[in-house]
C-alpha cells in the first residue's frame, strides 16, 4: 500500500484539448493526486499552461516523464499513433497508466502493449469516461441489480453537434474508431456480455468531403451479443440542436431511458410552441463530471491497489469492434467478431 500521506504523482503526456481537462481536474478536484510534470511537442504552449497552474516541470519529450523515478502514474493524451509506444515504455518504467481512447488503430500493437502492461503489473485504465456518467451509471446499476431483467434490446443515440475539421477527420481513424468506439464500450458495459457479430451501415449525408477521405458522417451499427441481446447505435457527426446522447435498455422486466442533460430545465410556453433547452453543447460540457469521476477512480485504484473499471482489455475489445464495424460497412455484410483472445 502506498503511503496515504503522499500524493499520487502524475505526469501528463499531450496537452491538447483532453490533456488540459485531465490536468485541470487533477489540480482542482483530486486532492489525492498532483500534476508534477507535463509534456508536449509544443513546449511553449505547455509552458504557458504550466505557469498558470504552477507546474514546474515541462518537457517536449515524454520520456523525461516516463523515466522520472518520482512519477507514479502517467496520463497519455498524445495523438493515438503514439499511444502503444508510450504505454509500453511507461509500463516498463513501472508507471501506472491512464490512456485516452482508442488505445491504437492497430489491434496487434494494442495486444503487444497490453502484454507488456500485464508483465509489468501496472494499472491501465482507458478513457471511456461515459461509464462514469451519472445517467449511464444509473442505467448500468439498474441492469446489475436485475431491475430490468434480462437485457433484450439496447438503443444508443450518439450524435455530435457539428462536423469536425477535415484535418481532424483524416487522422481520427474514421467514425467507428473515433466516435462509435464510446458506444461500443457502453454497449458491452450495459449488456454485460461479448459481441458475437456486427453489422454496420454508413452514409455521407452532411458533407461530400467526408466521402473523399473514405469516412462516413452518418452510421448505424447493430451488435448481436452472445446472450441474444441486440444493440442498435445510431450516429451522426452533426445534430443542429446539439450533442444528442441518449440510451435505452429494454429488458424482460422493463425499460430504462436516459435523456439528454440540458443547461436548465426551464420550459417556455408561448403562442406557437412550448420550448425547452437544447442538450448541453458538446462533450466538454455534457461529460464534464464524468471526466473528473474517471480520473478520481483511476487515482483511487492506484492508491488502493484495485482494478480499474475500464481495463486495457475493454480498450482492445472496443477497438476490435470498431475495426469490424468499418469492415462491415465497407463490405456491406455482417461480420462475426473473431480474434477476441488476447
Amino acid at each position: 500500500m502506498i503511503n496515504v500521506i503522499s500524493k499520487v504523482k502524475v505526469g501528463i503526456i499531450g496537452m491538447g484539448r483532453i490533456g488540459k481537462i485531465h490536468a485541470e481536474n487533477i489540480l482542482k478536484e483530486i486532492p489525492e493526486a498532483e500534476v508534477v510534470s507535463i509534456a508536449d511537442i509544443e513546449v511553449n504552449k505547455a509552458k504557458e499552461l504550466a505557469s498558470k497552474w504552477d507546474i514546474k516541470k515541462i518537457f517536449a519529450d515524454p520520456r523525461e516523464i516516463i523515466n522520472d523515478p518520482k512519477i507514479d502514474a502517467v496520463v497519455i493524451c498524445a495523438p493515438t499513433n503514439t499511444h502503444s509506444d508510450l504505454i509500453i515504455e511507461s509500463a516498463k518504467a513501472g508507471k501506472h497508466i491512464f490512456c485516452e481512447k482508442p488505445i491504437d488503430f492497430d489491434l496487434n500493437r494494442i495486444k503487444t502493449a497490453l502484454k507488456v502492461v500485464e508483465e509489468a503489473g501496472v494499472k491501465l485504465q482507458i478513457g471511456f469516461n461515459r461509464r462514469f456518467d451519472h445517467n449511464f451509471k444509473k442505467i448500468h446499476q439498474l441492469v446489475e441489480s436485475d431491475q430490468l431483467g434480462n437485457v433484450h434490446i439496447i438503443n444508443i443515440t450518439s450524435r455530435d453537434p457539428d462536423l469536425p475539421s477535415m484535418e481532424y477527420l483524416r487522422s481520427s481513424g474514421g467514425i467507428f474508431m473515433d466516435m462509435t468506439i464510446h458506444d461500443f464500450d457502453m454497449a458491452r458495459y450495459l449488456a454485460n456480455d461479448e459481441v458475437e457479430e456486427i453489422y454496420a451501415a454508413g452514409s455521407v449525408l452532411i458533407d461530400p468531403k467526408v466521402k473523399e477521405i473514405g469516412d462516413y458522417d452518418t452510421a448505424i451499427s447493430i451488435l448481436k451479443f452472445k446472450n441474444g441481446a441486440t444493440c442498435i447505435i445510431d450516429n451522426s457527426r452533426k445534430a443542429v440542436y446539439g450533442y444528442d446522447q441518449r440510451i435505452e435498455v429494454f429488458g424482460s422486466k422493463g425499460s430504462a431511458t436516459a435523456y439528454n442533460d440540458t443547461p436548465t430545465n426551464v420550459i417556455v410556453s408561448k403562442e406557437n410552441a412550448v420550448c425547452m433547452d437544447k442538450p448541453l453543447y458538446f462533450f466538454l460540457e455534457r461529460y464534464k463530471e464524468s471526466f473528473v469521476q474517471e480520473m478520481k477512480d483511476f487515482i483511487n485504484c492506484v492508491i488502493r491497489d484495485e482494478k480499474p473499471i475500464v481495463s486495457g482489455i475493454d480498450g482492445f475489445k472496443a477497438a476490435l469492434i470498431a475495426s469490424f464495424a468499418l469492415k462491415s460497412a465497407k463490405e456491406r455484410k455482417p461480420i462475426k467478431i473473431t480474434d477476441e483472445s488476447i
Partner: peptide
C-alpha cells in the same frame, strides 16, 4: 425480438427495433 435495418436510395438510414412483449405496455 427483432430488428430491421434499412438503407434508403437517398442514403438515409432506417432502423426498427421490435419486441413481441414489453412488460410496461404497448410501446
Amino acid at each position: 425480438t427483432a430488428f430491421v435495418s434499412l438503407k434508403m436510395k437517398s442514403g438515409a438510414l432506417g432502423i426498427i427495433n421490435a419486441s413481441r412483449k414489453a412488460i410496461y405496455g404497448y410501446d
